[in-house]
Amino acid sequence: MIDQKTRDELAEIAARYPEKRSGLLPMLHLVQSVLGQVTPEGIEACAEILEITPAEVSGVATFYTMYKRRPVGDYHVGVCTNTLCAVMGGDAIFARLKDHLDVGNDETTEDGKVSLEHIECNAACDYAPVMMVNWEFMDNQTPSSAVQLVDDLRAGKEVRSTRGPKICTWREAERVLAGFSDGLVDEGPAAGEASLVGLKLAADKGWTAPKGADQ
């Protein structure tokens, strides 16, 4: 249910912008963090606060793929199957997970824990094949590591992102996307190994950019 606290937070998001309608995308993230999906109630609440019609909110809520109109599990598991990841093993991982979890694309396991979705390129191609759990990076996966991963998630074991913090729930993640900090920023590394290969090589070779005016 959208209670007064949520309403106030929705209004707070809208107030970050010179024109309040700009708040709609993060507001829908907040709706998801509260309701576990975008529902007519959530649409109505956004419409009221922004003084636009529910149809206008619906138009937006159905355009962006991160907004879900069916309940999402505690862990949204995305497998990149865009070309590069697919070729590097993403297709095999996705097939394996569908089979292992006994769900199809965009479906949730019966225990409500894991929702599986094949996703498009997530800007981590140098870590292919890539998975995302609640939009945290899970780099360099294999079918067996993926199975281990979802099993751990379902078993409630602590899982850490390869380039990020301990995995929180999908609803908690959506709250961060709405612009409310969860204090986890300092967890995880600055960069993964692949991000640093060039830098390391340069250091090894003593390569640098030229000295500038100020140096």
């Binding site: 600055a190 960069a191 991000s195 640093l196 060039g198 830098l199 390391k200 090589l201 340069a202 250091a203 070779k205 003593g206 390569w207 640098t208 950019a209 030229p210």
Partner: peptide
Amino acid sequence: NQSVLTPVLTKNWG
């Protein structure tokens, strides 16, 4: 110079 790579934006990533 002979630097093939020129880390500027990536310089502090490590």
